[in-house]
Nucleic acid binder design. Structure first.
Lengths: 159, 159
DNA sequence: TATAATAGTTATAATTCATAACTATTAGAG
DNA sequence: CTCTAATAGTTATGAATTATAACTATTATA
């Protein structure tokens, strides 16, 4: 005999079980990602940055002179969608589109001083917030996680 | 002296470095998530399911009788957005909205036989695909990753 | 009984993501 | 060397996802 049910009424669910989904690593990744994304958004708000503008800025600071198409590929964003991101960063004078004399179709993306400074501050803030999220995890554990996630990422690119 | 640059031209970036972002676990989670999400979408396409409809179906099969608001909370989806998801599953006769005699505002979500069957098949397919993504990772490593991700998830909910 | 709260819905806006087509320019085949 | 194809960036646009306000019906509570 199963749970007693009055008449023909549907069972009342007191606690929702997601055990089946929990067997999938992907589910855990998704839920962790939700938390991380929410935390990141909150962290970046004071800098008036979103996740995309933040990562674009970091990549430009780290790779001064790169082209928009390179950045789009690195960020896994369609070229048309990158345009507005770059527009926004340029409008705020965090980066600039520098003309490339050897190829007049392309722009070399360069960070400004303000861009580098904001980037540094944002990175520091993100670092602090991430540390709080990862509190309770020992460094070797974290290394292990990163290794595993990289492995998954790799599997994806070799399709 | 740094890299030689002809005249005043911006440096040419041959390889885009994302080392700065790689220091963040969140970045790795995001990139792994992209791969997983793409793989999942491909896996579910033959069943005419998307990630949201799939997880909704699984949760309904595992928790027959649950209410839409419970499901919305479990899935981290706004109630209005869940309506169309449930509509879709119901239209395909995978689930049904059963009237609750004790509360005439609410619907108890129940899977149909077809729903349970499709769910089983989809779960099997996802399991197989995930196994391929995780090939190269030993079971204890996977356990470690899940533990770490759960920890992150937890940190988020205790804000 | 009156008021507040809840379940589900509708309508709608904001945001994100994807696609086609265009201009200007460069590279490559012949 | 010229013609064609390919590339960089852009514009326009649409699809999909996500979020918000307000509504109906019903239940819980003061």
């Amino acid at each position: 005999m199963t749970k007693p049910r009055q008449q023909d009424a549907p069972p009342v669910v007191e606690h929702v079980s997601d055990d089946t989904l929990r067997q999938f690593v992907g589910y855990h990744v998704k839920r962790a990602m939700n938390v991380i994304q929410g935390d990141l958004a909150k962290t970046l708000r004071p800098f008036d940055l979103r996740m995309v503008t933040y990562s674009a800025l970091v990549l430009i600071v780290d790779n001064p002179g790169l082209r928009q198409s390179q950045l789009a590929t690195a960020m896994d964003v369609e070229r048309p969608n990158l345009v507005v991101i770059i527009d926004e960063l340029e409008r705020r004078d965090l980066i600039l589109r520098e003309k490339v004399p050897t190829d007049r179709r392309a722009y070399a993306l360069m960070p400004t001083l303000a861009g580098r400074q904001l980037c540094d501050k944002a990175i520091a803030a993100v670092k602090a917030h991430e540390a709080r999220l990862l509190a309770g995890l020992a460094p070797p554990e974290i290394k292990e996680v990163v290794r595993a996630l990289s492995q998954i990422e790799l599997r994806g690119s070799e399709e």
